[in-house]
């Protein structure tokens, strides 16, 4: 390739490179640097070496938070973001197309809803008084009001996150199922497979790549997401629903008593980035994502 065309390619790549640099790379580097400081509300860069990491190793809350994070991430992933979305994709691809599409559009609504609205809706549903939606049903059927969030905090955040998270997988799996040549399904049918057998032996193996992709993508996404937890439980009661990213957030910005522990918060964040990276590499290797990549359709370089 000539010098000139190399320059041209560089020029084309420049905008996205700049965006990545300014909004992703520099913040990551700054966070990494910040994790070696004891920065607080005064925002001074006072480097303290590995102290924050030592503190992390001794943080008595951390084992609990790590457990919360794992339970939250993998329960939401297994029950909703992958598990239930496969079920919904199968069902919506099996019913008449129009019905399926309408159902999917409805299920996508929370995605377009501001998180705070969605959160408040769940607050109303789970309200501990008899005015909450769930409790009004319980009372109507002769029961006593239940303090849902306090009694089932982990279930609450898994379900509320899962119901939104389902739609991503549902759409991707639905498209994948729809793009299976119908001869495969017909062949399985003619071979005598029941619907469930078709799903198990033909459909699921044929959407293996989307399944793995969504699993990997949603793992990372769940590891770092906390906004609905923040709105609904603020990580409580007493750290019962505090996940890693929320813990870092609370240390830096929030909680009932603002801490402004930017330094230690950054340390936790950077460790999460490293964990996420490791998880990605593991997925990349275990799921053999390279095999899924196709040759580019046009030759640029």
């Amino acid at each position: 390739m000539s010098r000139k065309s190399k320059l041209f390619v560089a020029l084309l790549l420049l905008p996205s490179l700049l965006i990545t640099l300014v909004f992703y790379f520099i913040p990551a580097v700054m966070t990494a640097a910040m994790s070696f400081t004891d920065m607080d509300y005064r925002l001074s860069w006072n480097f303290i070496g590995w102290d924050n990491f030592k503190r992390m190793a001794q943080d008595f809350l951390l084992p609990r938070i790590m457990k919360n994070t794992l339970v939250y991430t993998f329960a939401t992933l297994a029950l909703f973001n992958v598990g239930f979305s496969v079920v919904l994709a199968l069902v919506t691809s099996f019913v008449p197309e129009r019905t399926g599409r309408i159902f999917q559009a409805l299920w996508l609504l929370p995605r377009f809803t501001p998180p705070i609205v969605y959160g408040v809706m769940w607050m109303w549903i789970l309200d501990p008084t008899r005015n909450g939606l769930l409790n009004s049903l319980v009372v109507a059927s002769g029961g006593r009001p239940v303090n849902w969030i306090a009694q089932y905090p982990m279930a609450t955040i898994v379900i509320t996150n899962g119901i939104i998270g389902v739609s991503f997988g549902m759409i991707i799996f639905y498209s994948a199922i729809k793009s299976i040549p119908r001869e495969f399904i017909w062949a399985a049918e003619a071979d005598g497979a029941s619907w469930l057998q078709q799903v198990r032996h033909v459909t699921l193996p044929l959407i293996r790549w989307p399944l793995l992709f969504v699993t990997a993508y949603q793992t990372l996404s769940l590891l770092t997401s906390y906004e609905y937890i923040l709105i609904l439980t603020e990580g409580g009661p007493f750290f019962a629903t505090t996940v890693w990213s929320l813990y870092a957030y609370n240390l830096a910005f929030g909680g009932y008593f603002a801490n402004y522990e930017f330094g230690y918060g950054a340390t936790l964040s950077i460790v999460l980035v490293v964990l996420g990276t490791i998880a990605s590499i593991v997925y990349w290797r275990v799921f053999r994502f390279r095999e899924m990549m196709s040759e580019p359709k046009i030759e640029v370089m």
């Binding site: 017909w186 062949a187 399985a188 071979d191 032996h201 193996p205 293996r208």
Partner: peptide, 24 residues
Amino acid sequence: LVFQSYALYPHMTVYENIAFPLRI
């Protein structure tokens, strides 16, 4: 039934493909 595209299940071996109607 034999299709024009054959519709052999790509994730199964030849043996598994032929055995499929019996396994079911």
